Amino acid sequence: MNYIYPEYFPNQDNTLITMKKKEAFRLYKFSDATLVTKGLEKIAFIKRDQIEFDRYNVVSVKREGLKTELTEFSDRETDIEALQEQVESTERKDKKAEELRVAIRGVMSCVELNFNVESAKYRKFGTDTLSRQTDAELLITAKRVVRVGTELLPILVNFGLTLVELDAITAMADDFTDLIVDQRLEIGERDIQQEDRVEAGNTIYSQLVKYTNLGQSIWIDNDKAKYNDYIMYNTVSGEAPATVGEV
Rank of each mutant, 00 (worst) to 15 (best):
Q133R: 04
R132L: 13
Y122H: 09
R123F: 15
R123N: 15
D135A: 00
R123E: 15
A136K: 01
E112G: 06
A136I: 03
F125Q: 11
D135I: 00
R132M: 13
R132W: 12
Y122G: 03
D128T: 13
L130S: 09
G126F: 10
K124R: 12
K124M: 14
D128C: 13
D128R: 13
F115C: 05
K121R: 15
T127W: 09
R132K: 12
A136G: 02
S109F: 10
L138S: 00
M108D: 08
A120V: 09
G126A: 13
K124A: 13
V107L: 07
V111N: 06
L113D: 13
G106Y: 13
T129M: 13
S131R: 08
E112W: 04
D135S: 02
K124W: 12
D135M: 01
Y122T: 07
T129S: 10
L138G: 02
K124G: 09
L130C: 02
L138I: 05
T129E: 14
V117L: 00
C110W: 11
G106A: 11
D135H: 00
N116D: 00
F115T: 05
D128K: 15
V107Y: 02
L130M: 07
T134D: 14
Q133C: 00
M108I: 04
G126H: 13
C110E: 11
V111Q: 08
E118H: 04
F125K: 08
N116Y: 03
E137R: 01
S119G: 05
E118N: 05
K124Q: 14
R123A: 15
E118C: 02
G106N: 14
T129R: 12
A136P: 00
Q133N: 03
T129P: 03
D128I: 12
L113H: 14
D135K: 00
G126T: 08
V107T: 04
V117A: 02
T127N: 07
E137H: 01
D128V: 12
N116Q: 05
Y122V: 05
